[in-house]
Amino acid sequence: MIKVTIDGHELEVENGTTILNAARSLGGDSVPPAMCYYSKLEGSGGKCRCCLVKVAAGSAKDPRPMPKLVASCVTQCQDGMIVESKNSQEVLDTRKAIVEFLLLNHPLDCPICDQAGECHLQDLGFEHGKAGTRYQEGRRVFNKIDIGPYIKLHMTRCILCYRCTMVADQLTPERVHGVMWRGEVSEISTYVHKAIENDFSGNMIDVCPVGALTDNTFRFKSRVWFLKPFNAHRSCTKCSGNVVAWKHGNEIYRITGRKDKYGEVEEFICNDCRFEHKNAADWTIEGPRLIDRHSVIGQNHFEAPYQDLLAKNLLK
């Protein structure tokens, strides 16, 4: 166990823990935002630069500060390290700049995008970004691509976090898509638009932090804040069958994995569950999901929050 100090809070973590995970165990405002790091995917992180923090003292042995801001998702804690996240103005200013960089080529077509309302880039821009834009040059233009029958790729919205390629690498035996080219021309592509036909390919939609990979079966069907998320399960031979069913009335509009508060799915689910079972009869509904108080998804839902109902013993 080693001791680190994050924003003035001292905590003990396992040897080898990254600064981001240490901050997450602390919770609260000190947790740096992360667009590319995904705890369930090995090797993710270090690409989006959202999670940059200031290291005021490298370790107890060598207390010199690190010369530049470091990416907290790939930097391990040292004993006696002093980290500044939300307490450092330099970090906050850098986050503003990073949001500007991420939005350089982003089309800002949120009114059209199916991800709007649960988009990490939207949240990031809202919390850490500037209200205006200084960018006047043309943005990247791509045609929409159907990756197989279920997934739609909008390359214009992609922020190149590489999460989807890691899903393909680590969840499925053979990857048929990847990131082509380099630098500002790089793009996600399949080899000659080959369909991705793996049973778990749909998880690319869940791990995508923006609306670049979206569910074709849910395309333009509704906005996420008009739907109510319910925990549901079914017996599935391929996956655990534990999902979130997004309902409007008795109709299931879409199925996604269950995401934790950092937007990372708890269990990857199979395409069968995700795309093929949209009948309410296929699923056993466990109960409404807790929606974050600040989330737009909870808007216009006037019923008492799930935890209130639990506290009042109104749910059985």
């Binding site: 949120c110 009114p111 059209i112 709007a116 333009f220 509704s222 906005r223 008009f226 737009v296 216009n300």
Partner: peptide, 14 residues
């Protein structure tokens, strides 16, 4: 109109 749903979301009378 692109049917983004923000008018319906903001509508206090639904």
């Amino acid at each position: 109109c692109t049917a983004c749903g923000l008018c319906a979301l903001s509508c206090p009378a639904e």
